[in-house]
Design a protein around this nucleic acid. Structure first.
Length: 224
DNA sequence: GTCCTGTACA
DNA sequence: TGTACTGGAC
């Protein structure tokens, strides 16, 4: 029998430990919701420092708008986003996103933001190149919708703690967080960002458990 | 499971 | 020289 209270206590405990260790992360660094959407696509399997270069290129070319990306020739757009890697598939992804935005919301983010969250999520998942993580990142970080973002780091950290199995599905993980946290956009925002921070600082692929703020509650640390 | 790809850092 | 990077399509 699963102990739901224990899950709830641990999910909240981990958040406070990470927050104490690393402080507020203030994601997502961007000047507009559309910039967040573009970043969410470009950062797929790419280091954020490389995404920043691609976004800087787009800004310099006055191309960081739905219309500009939709209308720009494929090779030209590929050249601009090249630093973020996988540039041919990512051009297709950005094009698909902007065509969807144009056809359904006249490229108007405010109009998009007013739509029902579940409906938006379904629509985004149907767009080429947008899977659950990218969809939830866009909904949370661009539009402020209360969805918890799951990524490879979340799976790594929480399966090591012993709260989950790494093979559990995206929806399983999302349910764990959304069922055990108050529905709070700020907390969802910071928690995911802190998970990314922790995966870089300590819970690497080869973990550094010596100076880990979660070692007291993590099975992997060997202390429990 | 494999492919897509430039960049940084050990 | 190898490895990892805030995944998703097929």
């Amino acid at each position: 029998m699963k102990d739901d209270n224990k899950d709830k206590s641990l999910v909240n405990d981990v958040y406070h430990r990470l927050l104490t260790a690393y402080g507020l992360q203030h994601w997502w660094p961007a000047q507009s919701p559309f910039e967040v959407m573009v970043g969410a696509v470009l950062t797929q399997s790419a280091a954020w420092t490389n995404v920043e270069k691609a976004i800087a290129n787009l800004k310099k070319a006055q191309a960081l708008s739905p219309d500009a990306i939709r209308k720009m020739p494929f090779p030209e757009l590929a050249e601009l986003i090249k630093p973020s890697g996988y540039y041919n598939v990512k051009v297709r992804k950005l094009k698909s996103l902007t065509y969807w935005l144009d056809e359904n919301y006249s490229s108007d983010i405010d109009r998009m933001e007013k739509a029902d969250t579940e409906k938006l999520r379904e629509e985004l998942l149907a767009v080429y190149g947008i899977g659950p993580e990218t969809a939830d990142s866009i909904l949370l970080y661009a539009l402020g919708k209360p969805l918890f973002v799951i990524d490879a780091y979340t799976k790594r950290i929480f399966s090591r703690i012993g709260l989950t199995n790494e093979a559990d599905s995206y929806n399983d993980y999302q349910r764990l967080f959304m069922a055990n946290l108050a529905t709070d956009v700020i907390v969802f925002n910071e928690y995911h960002a802190l998970i990314v921070k922790h995966a870089k600082e300590a819970c690497n692929k080869k973990p550094v458990c010596g100076n880990c703020c979660l070692s007291q509650i993590c099975r992997y640390s060997g202390k429990i």
